[in-house]
Write a protein that binds this DNA or RNA. Structure first.
Lengths: 340, 340
DNA sequence: TTGTACGCGTTATCAA
DNA sequence: TTGATAACGCGTACAA
């Protein structure tokens, strides 16, 4: 450890003394400058600059009823889907006086409930949570949060407060319909993790099959293990062994799709002729792949940015009426599903 | 916003009253229980449980000289290399009473300096920063931090405090040597972003070429743009147009390698015969690709976990002597570089 | 427009 | 082993 230098950080007191005003005035220039005279304001600003004053967030949080923290609870650290969301969140928070506090639930509702409790304890400026599958207790906490709460990644009725996302059911169903539109008749399904959002995609897939009058047979391969490219290869291998009639697959994410594509190539299956492949999320690599892979574009960065904006708007009282922002999705067709 | 319910959170005072002791005793049971009698300790524990008391981190930080926050400063949100590091960090922090505060510098040293200042203001329990290329001012701040400071991702002399990582120069040089060992004679280099760590990889590449007595020619393609799979394709296309004699490539990360592989396939270059490909980091997909892609394995999760552990050890005074932990790297050979 | 003075929930110092 | 009590740095009535 470095030597604990007596590094008395400069406080508001120092700034006040330096200018010759009271701490209250300094505090006011920081929070609502409009009630402070221009002259004093300038002098304080100069003093803050020259002394290098930085407010103490702990003291601020303690003295006021709110902290500057925006709490964010996501299910997973490593899933790059959430990396994009975080990118949006951080870029929207940048330049505000807010800071982000991140928590990972590891897809466990009870962890999530705990995190919510801990975060709420800090009287956060706002809270961003993922999805709609909270425990009863967590739901109660969120309804009484006393701060703006935004649910991201999904839409659904009965938001606790506000919501920004899209329908996973609709998106998956549209992707499946796309496969049919391209002439595929015996599509399969590859799924990993099988968390609630993934389940809803499976429902969409199944309902579209039903609507098309097609039996699903044994063409649904899922696992609760975490998704990966390797797993995509394994799942496709299993699927083709069990149900060789499969002529296309819908994968619940792009990693699986990529892995499936590699496995298809290993098996000398021609894409898209022998096998159509559609991913989900439309990560950057899908366009670069050979052949390029169709996917369902989702607006992850926008969800992150939008969620923060919703909180800021709530805080400033300029929030819109609509409780739910549906960002939709977009089927991006590429070579991997060009008919046959 | 939800209605601001009068949700008076339960404080230490409540717990104390409930048990019939002073707040001081409650505080002690939480921080050093060994000085409190077992009987009182049990009653307090019960009260905490039944009242659902959670300590207020702001009050704690204000009253003590340290907060429970471990500050982490990374260059990028979206780079999945750091997702793995974060995974390690969070899993090591879990179960401790610490929390993580994350900041992104966007590869800008001045942003980083600012973040360091802001984080230091919170008297963090520890600080984790990326690499060794801080500004002069940031270096001074970190040396006087008054808390454990760990630099991750790299090794190098003169750590501010402690360091855990590996030598990017050595790793890149070893990868290049591997290409030569496999019989390639005119290897090229694909680089994106070209931040200092990437630059050091380029140096390793160049020095190995020199050691092998091989001219680099025009086989070094770099850009300051952010890395992506698509960019890997573009860079390889450029490279092969300018320097068609290239018989292998070392890519500064796996995204570029994957993109390069796709582009090679588009150009009907046989891998590994016409073109050897080696990536960097050994992300999961490299093993699943078709053909599988050689890479340099780095221990990202371990860096995150290790960094937190170093901080915890420093805090508890159980830290080892060595200031620098070198996690090394590992050349993982796969089909993409099987000689020719 | 500015200053005074109290309180936020906890830690830490000192006595008891 | 326990209890008062003074900080910690800032926000905010209330007064001036």
């Amino acid at each position: 450890m470095n030597k604990n230098k007596e590094t008395k950080s400069v406080t508001m007191r120092d700034v006040a003394d330096h200018v010759g005003v009271s701490v209250a005035t300094v505090s006011r220039t920081l929070r609502n400058p409009e009630v402070v005279s221009q002259a004093v304001r300038d002098k304080i600003a100069a003093a803050i600059e020259s002394l290098g004053y930085l407010p103490d967030p702990a003291a601020r949080a303690l003295a006021s009823t709110r902290s500057d923290i925006i709490g964010v609870i996501l299910p997973s650290v490593s899933n790059n889907v959430f990396a994009d969301v975080m990118d949006g969140i951080y870029s929207a928070v940048e330049g505000t006086h807010h800071s982000v506090q991140l928590g990972y639930s590891r897809y466990a509702p009870l962890s999530e409930e705990n995190l919510i409790r801990v975060f709420l304890r800090q009287r956060p400026a706002g809270l961003i949570v993922t999805g709609i599958d909270q425990t009863e207790a967590a739901q109660a906490l969120l309804r009484e949060a006393g701060c703006p709460v935004v649910q991201i990644m999904e839409t659904g009725d009965a938001p606790y407060d506000r919501m920004i996302g899209f329908s996973h059911y609709d998106a998956a169903r549209a992707a499946t319909a796309h496969l049919f539109a391209q002439g595929y008749r015996r599509p399969g399904f590859l799924g990993a993790r099988m968390d609630p959002r993934t389940q809803r995609r499976l429902h969409g897939f199944r309902d579209e099959l039903r609507a098309q009058g097609v039996e699903e047979g044994k063409r649904i391969q899922t696992t609760t293990r975490a998704s990966s490219v390797t797993l995509g290869s394994h799942l496709l291998a299993q699927l083709m062994d069990i149900a060789p009639e499969t002529d296309a697959i819908f994968c619940i994410n792009d990693d699986l799709a990529l892995g499936a594509m590699f496995e298809a190539q290993r098996r000398n299956l021609r894409i898209p002729d022998d096998l159509g492949i559609c991913g989900f999320n439309d990560m950057e690599m899908m366009a670069a792949a050979e052949p390029s892979i169709s996917s369902v574009r989702t607006f992850r960065r926008e969800m992150g940015e939008g969620a923060v904006q919703l909180i800021l708007d709530s805080l400033s009282g300029t929030a819109a009426q609509e409780k739910i922002v549906d960002l939709g999705y977009q089927i991006v067709q590429r070579r991997s599903t060009r008919g046959h």
